[in-house]
Simulated scan of single mutants.
Amino acid sequence: MKAKTTNLKTLAEFKDEFYGKTGTEKRDKLEKGYEQFKLGALIHEARIEKGLTQEELAHKSGTTKSYISRIENNVKEVRFSTLQKIVELGLGGKLELAIKL
């Protein structure tokens, strides 16, 4: 039996083909959007894991429920100082920052 060939691509190959190579304007815009999505998803997952509602997290963090909702839904960019409050005061965690070159 002959092996079936597919047109599967890796995520990197797909992004290269449809959004251009890393460093192009279209690709950078895609990557920036992904980072915002990832941050919102991380906050959401951590909140759920802690058993908190958006309102409870907001209260502990000194912000509003709508602000937490906008971050989780990638509508709002969050300032670093506010993110630190959400993670440390609201979730009882530790925010770590890394720069990769």
Rank of each mutant, 00 (worst) to 15 (best):
G23D: 13
D16F: 03
S81C: 03
A58E: 02
T10L: 06
V78T: 15
M1D: 12
F18D: 04
R79H: 13
L42S: 14
E96Y: 05
K65M: 12
R79D: 14
E13F: 07
G51Y: 04
A3Q: 08
G40W: 02
V75S: 09
G33T: 10
K29V: 08
A98S: 15
K38L: 12
E31Y: 03
I48K: 13
K9P: 00
T63G: 00
H59W: 10
E17V: 02
G20C: 01
E55A: 13
I48C: 08
T6K: 00
E96R: 02
D28C: 05
G93T: 05
K76Y: 08
T5M: 00
Q54S: 07
I71Y: 00
F18C: 09
E88T: 15
G23E: 10
L89F: 06
K60H: 05
L52P: 03
K94I: 14
L97N: 04
R70Q: 14
K100Y: 11
F80I: 13
S61F: 02
Y34N: 11
D16C: 03
E35W: 04
L97T: 11
E13T: 09
A98E: 14
R27L: 06
E45V: 03
T10F: 00
K29F: 11
E17R: 04
E31T: 02
T24P: 01
G20F: 03
R70N: 15
N73I: 04
Q36W: 07
K9M: 13
T64C: 06
A41C: 08
V78S: 01
L30D: 09
I68Y: 03
K15D: 10
L52F: 15
I71C: 06
N7F: 07
E45D: 12
L42E: 15
F37M: 13
S81Q: 07
N7H: 11
R70S: 15
H44S: 11
Q36D: 14
S81L: 08
E31C: 01
E56L: 06
I68M: 04
Q36Y: 11
L91R: 06
G51T: 00
F14Q: 11
H44C: 12
S81G: 02
N74V: 15
D16G: 03
Q84P: 02
G92C: 07
D28M: 10
F80R: 01
K32W: 03
G20I: 02
K29P: 01
G33C: 06
R70F: 14
E96Q: 13
Y34K: 09
Q36C: 04
Y19N: 03
G33A: 12
E49Q: 10
F80S: 01
K29H: 10
L30E: 14
R70A: 15
K76I: 04
L101T: 07
M1F: 03
M1K: 09
I68P: 00
G62H: 10
T63W: 00
E45R: 04
N73A: 09
I68C: 05
S69H: 13
